[in-house]
Nucleic acid binder design. Sequence first.
DNA 1: TTTCAGTCTGTGAACGCTCCCAGACGTTCC
DNA 2: GGAACGTCTGGGAGCGTTCACAGACTGAAA
Lengths: 333, 333
Amino acid sequence: MAKRPTIHDVAAAAGVSRGTVSRVLNDDRYVSPAAHAAVRRAIAETGYIVNRNARSLVTQRTGSVVMVLSEPHEKVFEDPNYSTTIRTAIRRLGERDVSLVIMLAGDDGDRARVVHYVRGGHADGVLLMSTHAGDPLVDELESLRIPAVACGAVIGKENVIPYAAADDREGARQMARYLVGQGRRKIATITGPMDTPGGIQRLEGFADVLGRKASKKLIEHGDWTQLSGESAMARLLERTPDLDAVFVASDLMAAGALSTLRAAGRRVPDDVAVGGFDDSSVAATTHPPLTTIRQPLAEVAEETVRLLLALIDGGGPVEPVILPTRLIVRESA
Amino acid sequence: MAKRPTIHDVAAAAGVSRGTVSRVLNDDRYVSPAAHAAVRRAIAETGYIVNRNARSLVTQRTGSVVMVLSEPHEKVFEDPNYSTTIRTAIRRLGERDVSLVIMLAGDDGDRARVVHYVRGGHADGVLLMSTHAGDPLVDELESLRIPAVACGAVIGKENVIPYAAADDREGARQMARYLVGQGRRKIATITGPMDTPGGIQRLEGFADVLGRKASKKLIEHGDWTQLSGESAMARLLERTPDLDAVFVASDLMAAGALSTLRAAGRRVPDDVAVGGFDDSSVAATTHPPLTTIRQPLAEVAEETVRLLLALIDGGGPVEPVILPTRLIVRESA
DNA sequence: TTTCAGTCTGTGAACGCTCCCAGACGTTCC
DNA sequence: GGAACGTCTGGGAGCGTTCACAGACTGAAA
């Protein structure tokens, strides 16, 4: 295999010096049109591609960003949230010639690897996914002073790690208001884990609307999985058999709740109305199809990436971004 | 921020030369125990982390691998196949201190970016995901002579790009035999796209068992989506109303087929038996739960990574790996 | 004419590492 | 005693860039 052309070869082909080629490659100032054209032609002729390692060695910039997945759960990518964010990140970063490295941070070993990677200066920024409250990784990254953003708030670090997220609280309010507006009287909720922003804020939004009616008796917690939705629904039914609606904090858990309701002989929405959250792909395929809250996942992903790039470019302080949700009425409520 | 320690600092702290530190860091031969200990201690004291850029600059190795996703479909990560492979790849590569860069290759622009990246020497190897038949990227990578493997065969390149895959054909035979063994007489099939290995080989396995009974009338094609399963099932029912079984080449399409069957008033499995493929998460949650073929996804992923590492390490020729499938009997057949 | 600012170019010096070579030590063997 | 060999070490050279600086050339202003 022939050696790859270097900046020297390009300079020779264009009849200029390395410096001029470098200037064309980078800021492009102070280069005569003639030189510019000659260099461009030489690059095309030689098939020159800049060597990032050599560049990084002197610039201390790597041209890559690392996405850190804290969720230890095996099927994590199947979450549409991840799916969308990863694709969006790859695309948007790619446009800027920044590549995306993915790392796991499920256990301490993984976490150490991430810290080592970042400390080694191998990335210009960090994109945090589903980082849980109290994750030690956040403190470590903070002390390394590397640009970092999160997709969805990092609980307890909202003012430290900028983030983009859907308006979970208002989304929950929308659903709660809708259920109330439909004349439902005894409205329960199945929340997500209480160490996740979605878990907390969707419950808060629910409580905002229901007020004192949101009694402990009507609240159960799940862990986002379908199975947890099933069992939470079973507990609710046992405790409050006369409930006539339930707001479930994710569509997948709502699908589980539907199974339990069906098994218990309750008709949906006649006996019990069910509201989901996410508007994920399962929502349209349950029986009956789920009335749910749509999150602007793609926009959240876009904004997250934008924040990170802004931070890397050093464009001053960066504000969190909260994007609006929307009620999608189907048949379950 | 204090400057990061370099190999010089470590050498000074250990009272040896750069060369000795480098030897400890790399092959470790010809280093006295005393020097070795001193260097190890100095590394710990200084918090030294090797600068990959500087290393790559001279070794021409990057310590990273790029995973190329050819599937243009938006929800691609939700496919458990991807999910598992990505996680496995990150984990196994991480153990060897190799990082994983993910790139898209959905359109020509993406593809050009991948080629540029690889030509630029930014990766030591390429891991191809769901590359379609005739994808020009394969030829380009081939001509660049970069180590490349695929997860699932690349049609028409089986002898060029090593791969690991489940035994799609035998899996389809298992299901077909099972359906025949259950006394089903008129067995139809819904295949995947005929430019994917799963599409082709699962049909071939089906035909292996059914022989002449696998008439054109009993074959319909889908594109792996649930919707395509629904419409393919509808076409089959219209053409052959008296069919009593259908082998669907993916669980998601099978879920679609179930909807259509229910809507048409057929009972499953009483009137029509339905067999899926994949044993993905939807399989257990359909009504009724799907009888399906389980693929050893995790092992396929493991093997794919193993092949790539072997290829990068230059361990001679590398053979494709085919892993066995298994029939999972639930209620739909 | 001189001076000055602005534009444009080339070159040496890093960046932090690995590779290679030379040489200093032992041993062992003739 | 010296040759031959294996072990261990240090340091120069080079990987392909960018950056800073010095200098050359312009044209306009004094």
